[in-house]
Design a protein around this nucleic acid. Structure first.
Lengths: 110, 110
DNA sequence: CGCTTACTCAAGCACTCGCTTTATCAAGCG
DNA sequence: CGCTTGATAAAGCGAGTGCTTGAGTAAGCG
């Protein structure tokens, strides 16, 4: 689990890879199609896709001589869940703090 | 924005730093307190905290000779929003696909 | 004042990252 | 068969990461 989150957040820590994920969320694409907008070699994009694949964020098939890429949202959900959990804990703590302050205020008003 | 997301996801791409974030979500802590459970030097933890601070995930004050660390949820929210957006786009596309399939099914039944 | 505590700075080391270039492979086309 | 297309493999390079040890700083305590 730790290793999977390592891989997902590492994969998302690069602007090019985030852009690829965003584009794949709108539909599958081949390596060439994905590489087209970037000012870098096809090989570099292929390496980015390997990072994304290793993290589980995308999967790849074979169709003729292309390797179509597809977003796999399951790992995205794990990342979402992890961040959400820390966020929730923080919020609950703040709520408790606020309640305590309100109680203090009320007891002083007595 | 891209740079901020780079920094946040890079910060979250390490299990020790994720653990620190999770612990800070439950309450502020000093460097020494945070370092205590890990089998690494205090300096190493201090460096992890610098990464977290640069990303905006935590802030640090000064109190006597300690540097209390505090989670700042704003950047966490940005990461949450980014992932959520890709997730949402994917889900909507799947919904549209399903609708089209249902329509195909219905037109065949006519 | 000296001593401890809490922490940072700096240098060094093994390792990884992002990208390049060159070479290679596998599928389809003439 | 040769040739192009889509993609991967391998090697190398500069920059960055994670950690260490050693030294330094700043605040509190006797």
């Amino acid at each position: 689990m730790d290793q999977r989150l390592d891989a997902v957040f590492t994969a998302l820590a690069d602007a090019t890879r985030r852009d690829i994920v965003a584009r794949l969320s709108a539909g599958d694409a081949t390596v060439k199609e994905l590489a087209e907008p970037y000012a870098m070699s096809l090989q570099a994009v292929s390496q980015h896709l390997q990072v994304l694949e290793r993290s589980g964020l995308i999967s790849r098939g074979r169709h003729r001589q292309t390797r179509p890429c597809r977003l796999e949202p399951a790992v995205l959900d794990e990342a979402l869940a992890w961040i959400g959990e820390s966020r929730r804990t923080w919020t609950e703590r703040m709520d408790r703090l606020e309640n305590r302050l309100v109680q203090l205020q009320e007891s002083r008003d007595d």
